[in-house]
Design a protein around this nucleic acid. Structure first.
Lengths: 361, 361
DNA sequence: CTGTTAGCGCGTTCAT
DNA sequence: ATGAACGCGCTAACAG
């Protein structure tokens, strides 16, 4: 069992030595050719090498090169959740940047499991990646020890990690939450529920919630009354907790619809501000189940993130510059790999408000 | 420019030699320890090695191991489109299987660009992956030459590649399309439009369309009339073509609603069978724009794939066993890597019909 | 049981 | 302008 592959199928790839022999020269010249040191090769030799490579379909072994020169052009990309469209879009940017910089991203998907996260981080160092981009969930400084300060360069995406100083790039959460809140206030809404997953541990969620709260308090009372902020925690991973939270929201919606019966404009509807797309989806599903297809008549839903169903449902969103986030993350990492020693940097990119029917009726 | 990293930041990882010195022994013993040949090590030496490794925080260099033994436990995973939920779900299965088999997947995202596809395939062989899982779009035998038969083992996912004999795993397209078609026919629908992206080149699309057509013809005429199959090609990448196709569909819908005014049950509504989720989304967006929020009253939408918005919209779907597809693909590949020489195998997994309001009203 | 030796495929002095 | 020799980190004979 576990026998080595019976090689007849794989004719063994050509090595640099094979090419040297084929071209009737030494390995050194081949190496030079591969590394573009053309000025040091006689046109004649160069032609022979070219031919030999072509004939043998030779392709240099990256592993061996990496071993020798100490850098293998590999970077790790640790993802918390590929199911989330945000993540995939960030990835697009990452791949583009890697392509441009001659890097190869090793993509690791932790699937929301902290254990996986640890395993992959370990695995990545094992493959001697030159740097890591981390979009993690449970990581604390400890599990990230091989990385950052003393270890290999790292840059964080979206969320910071407790006790770890590293570059971080992501949405300007403060500005985004404020943007959404003001949009709702301007639309005449007063009862606004900010719904967010447990946010103590995740910096981006924390920032959004705080900014929401702040924007609400800053708002001066108008004819339509004072702003009434509510924060609702929705733990997607815990059905019971979710049920309780949603019930609480239901009561508020019913009460508002009753109390404000006859009120003007949006003061009657309660607005719900989802901190991200997964939350928004959960809310939409619940509200539809409870209030029927016409649920949007009673609730105005606004969400950070712009899922593919947003257009279909007509909900207003704040789109994150996901692609840029990924792209910038790689650029930062690349600089670190090249030896930049600056202190930890932040790169906060602005979100874009996309107004749809949900908040403009 | 392009200076090597100023190493002070990276204290250089410990090597096997360091550990040997630290433990006061030779490299061989360390190697043996690493490979679990415990029975050949005195408990005393073993303890010393353990301690040394711990002290130096040593982690073997996979690159070097791979170089030596000729297998690096890396496999390539070439993806056509990570934006597609199908792909991501397949990926979950792939990662799980890799984890179980001690493989490390190198994920490459071609983002629907044939050129990328080529580049990545080339890159993968450069890293000497032991095998490749391919879910590609434009690949023809030619660009896949380094792979398959003479090259490294490959297994295809979802679609076959012209002229390339290799294992393939995916949905049982024939059965799935038939399942959906019969469901619609049983529901009383007679005018059924099968909407699919250009399918000449993509085997799975071709199979679905053929099976749809077949199921329609096989259906015997009933009280509700004869089955009227229509195939509509929708090129998502070509706005003009899309517009024309959608207009054609619109005319059919209008005509049917007019002609059958007063007919019983679903014979009046036209049913639209989307060949996959991207098509379904495009259709839903268009229909909503044209017929308003109540579009489902005039059209019954059914789709292969089960996107996250399906539940929200209440459309019936045929869910693919995506996770299993990914898992099986890796298992197949693993067998090939271990030297299995059987002829090309097919693994067709069944889809699951999820009935929702769209086809049961 | 344990250490020595010789490469894996490649890049890099250092001669020539 | 070119090639020989050494070593990257590790495994695999082959001795002891």
């Amino acid at each position: 069992m576990n026998a080595p592959p019976t090689s007849p199928a794989t004719p063994r790839r050509a090595t640099i030595t094979d090419v040297a022999r084929e071209a009737g020269t030494g390995k050194t010249s081949i190496s030079r050719y591969l590394n573009g040191e053309m000025s040091v090769l006689s046109p004649e030799l160069r032609a022979r090498i070219e031919a030999a490579i072509e004939r043998l379909d030779y392709q240099p072994n990256q592993m061996a090169r990496g071993l020798k020169r100490g850098r293998n052009r590999l970077i790790g990309m640790l993802l918390a959740d590929l199911t989330n469209r945000y993540t995939v879009e960030v990835l697009q940017g990452v791949e583009a940047a890697c392509h441009a910089l001659g890097l190869m991203p090793l993509i690791c998907h932790a699937a929301n499991e902290v254990e996986m996260e640890r395993r992959y981080l370990q695995l990545l160092t094992t493959y001697r990646v030159e740097g890591v981009i981390v979009n993690a969930l449970g990581v604390r400084e400890e599990t990230l020890r091989p990385v950052g300060g003393g270890g290999i360069p790292a840059v964080l995406v979206d969320r910071s990690v407790e006790g770890l100083v590293a570059d971080i790039v992501g949405l300007d959460n403060r500005a985004a939450a404020e943007l959404g809140t003001r949009h709702l206030l301007d639309g005449g809404f007063r009862d606004i529920w900010f719904v967010v997953q447990p946010f103590e541990q995740v910096s981006s969620r924390r920032l959004r919630e705080a900014a929401f709260r702040e924007a609400m308090t800053a708002h001066e009372t108008t004819r339509a009354g004072a702003a009434r902020p509510h924060t609702l925690v929705l733990d997607l991973a815990d059905p019971e907790q979710s049920a309780r939270s949603l019930a609480q929201l239901d009561r508020a919606i019913d009460a508002a619809n009753h109390y404000h019966a006859g009120a003007v404009g949006n003061a009657a509807r309660v607005a719900v501000f989802a901190a991200n797309a997964p939350v928004a989806l959960r809310l939409a599903l619940h509200l539809k189940a409870r209030y029927g297809a016409d649920w949007q008549a009673r609730v105005a839903l606004l969400s950070i993130d712009d899922p593919e169903w947003a257009e279909l449902t007509g909900i207003t969103t704040i789109r994150q510059p996901t692609y840029d986030i990924g792209y910038r993350a790689v650029e930062f990492l690349h600089e670190r790999i090249e030896g930049v020693q600056t202190g930890a940097r932040d790169c906060l990119l602005p979100g874009e408000l996309i107004v749809r029917a949900s908040t403009s009726g």
